[in-house]
Design a protein around this nucleic acid. Structure first.
Length: 293
DNA sequence: ACCCAGGCGGGCG
DNA sequence: CGCCCGCATGGG
């Protein structure tokens, strides 16, 4: 629908193991700030100053991705980065498919991808996520974009406000977006990330160091830092433990007994190693959609 | 009405 | 350290 408005040369690439709907519904940052058209199997989203439109045709186990960037830049490159197309999903499924529990999730959501998002977008989305539910996270994120983002001409997409933009906003205006008690964190994190920390320069490959740096940000604790490491920096070792994952791990791997997050994290890293982040996303989404009830 | 949601920071022992 | 509590808000 918006393909025409975007104009310019697009990319058309064929990939295996790709399902846009599963990816979109699995509650990753992209899915909080993108528009999704279920009928067209298409999404539009902001990426910095440009907008991206993607239409996916799925046929016979393969998907054809048709994408356009509003500024005419390389759409294929954007897709490879954003949807981690270089990841060998068959290999990953083989590595994390250690038992029937997770194999069920893989079978059910075959083709669900981890996305790679901007570090700041990821940080803001997951600060919003704390003590919250997916529907409302989406609502609040949309409110912030509508209030503080700007139009990207000719696309119908609005940009995601940077930390420097939100740093100039009043806490009251941030609160008015429905952020509740998180308004203080968002105001503080915005100032910190625009003045005292360059998210783009953090050590993405060093999991421990990256995480401890991220936790210097107000409103970012263990869980949110893991989410940012995973979906904002592509650190696949990160294993975020939210209420769903905790419950599910205890149920499936600890005989229903309560465990400390530290123990669960060690178990996960030992079991799924460098792909623990993928295991987490499949467990999370399958659990949240009732697959382990 | 009550309970829960992709938790975190602060305070107390 | 570990544990416990309050927290804005909307939907089930």
């Amino acid at each position: 629908m918006k393909m025409k408005a975007f104009g310019g040369m697009g990319a058309r690439i064929m990939v295996k193991d790709f399902n846009l709907r599963y990816t979109f519904e699995s509650a990753q940052p992209l899915t909080f700030y993108a528009d999704y058209d279920k009928d067209l199997n298409s999404i539009s989203y902001p990426d910095g100053k440009r907008a991206v439109n993607l239409v996916v045709e799925e046929l016979g186990g393969k998907a054809i991705l048709n994408a356009v960037c509003s500024d005419g830049s390389d759409a294929a490159k954007e897709l490879r980065r954003r949807f981690r197309l270089a990841d060998d999903m068959r290999k990953i499924y083989n590595e994390i498919g250690t038992d029937g529990n997770i194999k069920n999730a893989i079978r059910r959501y075959d083709g669900m991808r981890l996305t790679l998002n901007g570090p700041w977008e990821t940080t803001l989305c997951f600060i919003i996520s704390q003590f919250n539910n997916v529907k409302r996270i989406r609502l609040i994120t949309r409110n912030i974009i509508n209030k503080f983002g700007g139009p990207i001409s000719g696309t119908g997409v609005r940009s995601f406000p940077g930390s420097e933009t939100l740093a100039l906003a009043s806490e009251k205006d941030i609160f008015a977006c429905g952020t509740g008690f998180r308004a203080r964190y968002i105001a503080s994190a915005s100032k910190f990330c625009s003045e005292n920390m360059d998210l783009k320069k953090l050590p993405a490959r060093n999991y421990e160091k990256l995480k401890s740096r991220l936790m210097e940000i107000d409103g970012v604790g263990e869980k949110v830092a893991d989410c940012i490491a995973l979906m904002g920096y592509g650190n696949l070792r990160a294993f975020p433990i939210d209420v769903w994952v905790k419950r599910t791990m205890e149920k499936l791997y600890f005989g229903g007994q309560k465990r400390k997050e530290r123990e669960i994290r060690e178990f996960a890293l030992d079991r799924w190693g460098g792909y623990a982040g993928y295991a987490q996303q499949y467990l999370f989404h399958h659990a949240r959609t009732g697959g382990y009830d």
